[in-house]
Amino acid sequence: MEQTITLQVQRYIPEQYPEPYFQSYEVPLRKKWVILDALNYIKDEIDGTLTYRWSCRMGVCGSCGMMVNDRPALTCATFLEEYAPGPVRITPLDYFGIIRDLVVNTDDFMGKLKRAQPWLITDEAKPLSEGAYKQTPQEKAEYEQYSMCINCMLCYSACPVVGLEPDFVGPAAIALAQRYNYDSRDEGEDQRNEELTGEGGIYSCTLVGECSEVCPKAVDPAGAIQRYKATGAVEWWQSVLMPWKGKS
């Protein structure tokens, strides 16, 4: 007989039950199955009402993030076998509102992402006739690590400050701000500093470091935030000690 493992899945169906509850499912414990395969098995074979997000199954789209035994993980990149003999607890990402079952509300995160202005900002757009914005491989290497972020939001669920301070802009957004701050083609650093060195910005971070621990793309948001704190401090001292210098 095939070996099985129990998945304790948090359900939330607001129109039927006001509170979330747990439902257990027994699924085959197959080698090479990831948690997402087990959820798909439940959806296809046991209970079609189970709701969750997923898309690429290969750690690129960032939509299948959930808490697996209370730790944020991409369910497509987490092997079921590691949790044998089980049971495994699957809950929605911490610190997010739940829409249904394992689907969380990302509106707040989207707003925070916007605060970080993660796009190329230039003082003046170059006319098309002048050609492309060029960049050397060295210049690209400056920010490449931070550009690997897939917006999976695992770092938000890992960060206790996100849980305690709803205004904290959070790890991924700050790492993405740095992705553009370190881009040789970008001129938006002042704008981002304005937004990120104030209330709920980089200095709310207490360097717990869990964001970098759970990041599936080795972005190291904690490192990005620390570097930003140092930049912000230099800027602050400059504005106090050399006010005539103005903004660079």
């Binding site: 304005e194 060195t197 104030g198 200095y203 704190k229 140092a230 912000g232 602050w236 001292w237």
Partner: peptide, 17 residues
């Protein structure tokens, strides 16, 4: 929306040093 000038960078500098 301009965030108000914060003293956190000051305290953080002393903390870091």
């Amino acid at each position: 929306m301009a965030a108000k000038k914060h003293n956190d960078p000051f305290w953080w500098t002393l903390f870091g040093a």
